[in-house]
Design a binder for these strands. Structure first.
Lengths: 344, 344
DNA sequence: GGGATTTGAGCAAACGTTTGAATATAAGAT
DNA sequence: ATCTTATATTCAAACGTTTGCTCAAATCCC
């Protein structure tokens, strides 16, 4: 405890390896990166000495010289949302295998923080950026600047088509369609919708899917049954509004599991039985949907697959400089539980 | 689409600013970092031109020269667990305000991957590392190496005392104590425990808290009522084992909400009423605990606060080189819901 | 007014890697 | 024996900062 001599061992460098082998640093560098110009014998020697000295490459130096850093940046609205943490999980898994690291920033659904994050990532010299837009972002100059700087950009989930980048998204239209179709085929006829507004692409598309499903079933969609609701509390209030007068919908499709939770709460309080009097469907397959009472039917988005896909598209850009933007949307799958299936 | 001239604008550098002002790059550098050796007038001019050129500092270059990168690394067992994503949320929030970025790696509860992550972070020249150990990690050389390299290390949640670093943890002992004490004061007398084994510090300490609470209440702890269980399925099976013969405990404390969920499931299936016949308590305050039926009493760990704390201790190390390791554990708070309170 | 001190800014080297160009050696063709 | 070609390696510059040292000019002190 007393004379703690903070002895810091300097990290071994390429030069140390070169000196030990009486070779040039450039030879060592090429040997380590597997250049065909270096003989196998030298490569083996270099590998041996590198391991001996526990050599760890200095990415700062490599990046400075070569412009490549093996780091990609990720910007999401919030880290502690199931959807995003799961998507990042997928990205990390995919990118790690190619030797990439992730720098992660959150925008907190705030335009200014998103701009800061972009600057910060560029400052860190990332090789590419994966972003899901904050709900406040209406202006895309900061992202156009990323593209102009020659840094590949990939959008996922919350995207805009004002930027010429790949967009990895769920098939939200299909999700909304399947959900309502399921309710209709279960005999529900008057479908209420709690949607997330028309600004964000994901919510807009789900609602379009809903309308299509209704149309295909020959049912005219009814604006009076559509309300905007984001949070659990919103869901509760919206359910109250729709159901209070006794002439409400016989099923409600919610664009988020949290709003669906609010609906379930109101139903319990108002003694409306789910699913026999009211069908309820959520969206996102949050962890809790399995254990509500009754358990909540929902739409699964395969978020980790989405993340993996985003990562893999970025990797293509980084390695092949491919400029193709077309990507198939990730299919959503309906998870049918108790809240949407009434006994005959 | 055809003649897409990929025009990449070179990022402005300190040299560009210097040229424009007919000054030396070193002066610009010092002006930007607020050195007292530079006049206010020059500082203002530099700031103006920097903004004009949209200058973004190159951290790779700065790190290479100065050894500081303004990036810290985080290693967690898994990203997509509520506890960790919430903790990282806290860290990111705290560190961002000081201009730091986070590189995040997951070990997937795997020792080898943890070692890889360490190498990768050192390779990225991070200024410091925050880690929560994988459950497989029994050997700490890779982390000792981090310390020997002079890179500050902070452990959180899953920690070992074999390393001379700060450790940011929950007061798991208190959590276990409070939980069982609550059950006892509600009239439950025969307390079953589903614990997480004695290897990982967090589970061990919770169990010690349990024992202390029993002892303080003059109740002899009974090994036959203590089983190891990690997952939901484990919880279901353990509950079955404990309760099947009709002579089981009248309450069960689970070291994780997931196992508690398993217990609830078995109880429902076996027609054991919760909380009147069986009290159930979980741990972690997962999102779903609020909506189970009955809602699940649990222990909240303030994970974001834990993350913030870890970040703030690391910051202290980075800025003051402070070597104090003492940190108060984060208090846990009991969240009392329906599963542990029986009507009198 | 001469020497000491303060203030502001320039010079040049260094960080560790990558890479185009140059060189040395060996093998092959004429 | 001479000229090519191929192979394996070295040389040296460059990436954009930071920083110890030097230096010029201005200010101060007696």
């Amino acid at each position: 405890m007393s004379n703690k001599q903070e002895r810091v061992e300097r990290q071994a460098t390429i030069i140390d390896i070169a000196n030990k082998l009486k070779k040039d640093p450039s030879t060592v560098s090429r040997a380590l990166s597997g250049s065909p110009r270096i003989s196998d014998r030298t490569k083996e020697e270099v590998a041996r000495v590198a391991a001996e000295l526990n050599y760890i490459p200095n990415r700062a130096a490599a990046r400075l010289r070569s412009g490549r850093s093996k780091v990609v940046g990720v910007i999401v609205p919030r880290l502690n949302h199931h959807f995003f943490s799961e998507a990042i999980y997928g990205m990390e898994a995919k990118l790690k295998r190619e030797g990439y690291n992730l720098i992660i920033c959150q925008s907190n659904e705030n335009y200014v923080e998103e701009c800061d994050a972009v600057r910060s990532l560029l400052s860190s010299q990332v090789d590419g950026i994966i972003i899901s837009l904050s709900s406040q972002t209406k202006n895309f100059e900061h992202l156009q600047y990323v593209l102009d700087s020659g840094v590949p950009l990939v959008q996922f989930d919350r995207v805009t088509d004002e930027l010429n980048t790949p967009r990895i998204v769920n098939d939200n239209f299909e999700g909304g369609y399947k959900a309502v179709n399921h309710l209709l085929s279960g005999g529900y006829r008057k479908i209420g919708v709690l949607h997330g507004g028309m600004v964000t692409n994901v919510y807009r598309e789900r609602l379009e899917g809903v309308h299509q499903a209704l149309e295909d079933a020959g049912i005219k969609s009814n604006k009076a049954l559509e309300l905007e609701a984001f949070t659990e509390k919103d869901g509760y209030n919206a359910a109250k509004k729709l159901l209070a007068n006794g002439n409400g919908p016989d099923a409600i499709f919610c664009c988020s599991d949290h709003t669906a939770l609010g609906v379930l709460e109101y139903a319990k309080e108002a003694n409306i039985s789910v699913p026999s009097e009211l069908g309820v469907l959520g969206y996102a397959n949050e962890l809790f949907t399995r254990v509500t009472n009754p358990s909540l039917s929902t739409v699964d988005q395969q978020c980790d697959k989405l993340g993996r896909q985003a990562a893999s598209v970025l990797l293509k850009r980084l390695t092949f400089k491919s400029m193709l933007n077309v990507e198939e949307p990730i299919k959503s799958s309906l998870i049918i539980r108790d809240s949407s299936v009434r006994a005959i």
